[in-house]
């Protein structure tokens, strides 16, 4: 009895805290279906502005599906259906009137495998800018430099800007992809296991970069790497079989998880 009361108290405090913080995305009662299969079940998640929120959980738990529905990348999948709300500036992103093309300029995404276009390093940045109507070539190249510097790639590539982006290493390619996403000036960054294909050094660079970027951007990060979540995330959500088992600040999650399943997962007993 005592325990239940205490827990309620904690939960109340939690909700109170929530109301005070500045939310960037407020997901409520989100359910996602692929045909008859429900991939995400009634998930609610307040995502704070200028913070890193990590989504963890075993493969197939729905965390990537959840992430990809924020910028509507699942729209093209056959049988896909989403219910609930993803509020962003009081607008429901799942609304049929939302133009996914415009939305994706606002909410950028970086993928698991680095996916630079088979053009030069410079063009990987300037082409999307051109696409979004930046007419001046000099301006585009200036932007390219700015964002290559921001991801710490400029010094490595400044002498070979016209070489193919595919000649870069995996880690460099991934930072290029992040720069390319930043260049079109989103306010939210969605990252789908951005470092899982990279070696530890490249991974460390990406993590360092994410910590720097959260000053300006709201970051949602899907990761398989628990240490990574512990190192960079402010909040952590543990997904299991389409549900959120636990969502709390990262420190609490890793040091004193409330749920038995979270504890089991962290200590490697399943997943």
């Amino acid at each position: 009895m005592q325990a239940v009361l205490e827990r309620e108290l904690v939960e109340q405090q939690w909700t109170k805290e929530q109301q005070e913080v500045d939310l960037c995305l407020d997901v409520t009662d989100l359910s996602i279906f692929y045909g008859p299969k429900q991939a995400v079940k009634n998930v609610s998640m307040p995502i704070k502005r200028h913070s890193i929120t990590a989504l963890i959980g075993p493969s197939g738990c729905g965390k990537s599906t959840f992430l990809r529905s924020i910028n509507r990348m699942n729209d093209g999948i056959k049988g896909f259906k989403a219910e609930g709300n993803i509020l962003y500036d009081d607008v429901n992103l799942l609304d049929a009137n939302i133009d996914p093309v415009a939305l994706r300029k606002e909410i950028g995404m970086v993928f698991q495998r680095p996916n630079p276009f088979p053009n030069s390093i410079l063009k990987n940045l300037t082409l999307p800018l051109k696409e979004h109507g930046l007419k001046s070539k000099a301006k585009r190249e200036e932007y390219a430099e700015t964002y290559l510097k921001q991801v710490g790639l400029w010094d490595e590539v400044k002498d070979r800007l016209h070489e193919s982006a595919l000649s870069l290493s995996g880690g460099q390619q991934q930072r290029l992809c992040i720069a390319r996403t930043l260049a079109i000036q989103p306010s939210v960054l969605l990252l789908d296991e951005p470092a899982s294909a990279l070696d530890p050094i490249a991974t460390a660079k990406i993590e360092e970069l994410l910590l720097k970027l959260k000053e300006k951007y709201t970051i949602v990060l899907v990761t398989h790497n628990l240490q990574q979540a512990a190192r960079v995330a402010d909040d952590t959500a543990f997904f299991y079989q389409g549900e959120i088992v636990e969502f709390t600040d990262t420190k609490t999650f890793f040091q004193s998880p409330k749920e038995k399943r979270s504890e089991d997962y962290i200590s490697g007993r399943f997943g």
Partner: peptide, 26 residues
Amino acid sequence: PLELKEGGLALGYTHWRTITRVLLPS
């Protein structure tokens, strides 16, 4: 590769521009 196509879409390219700017060149 699907990643390239999604890369285009995620950068706010329309479907048509993704075809002409990403898929066809590749």
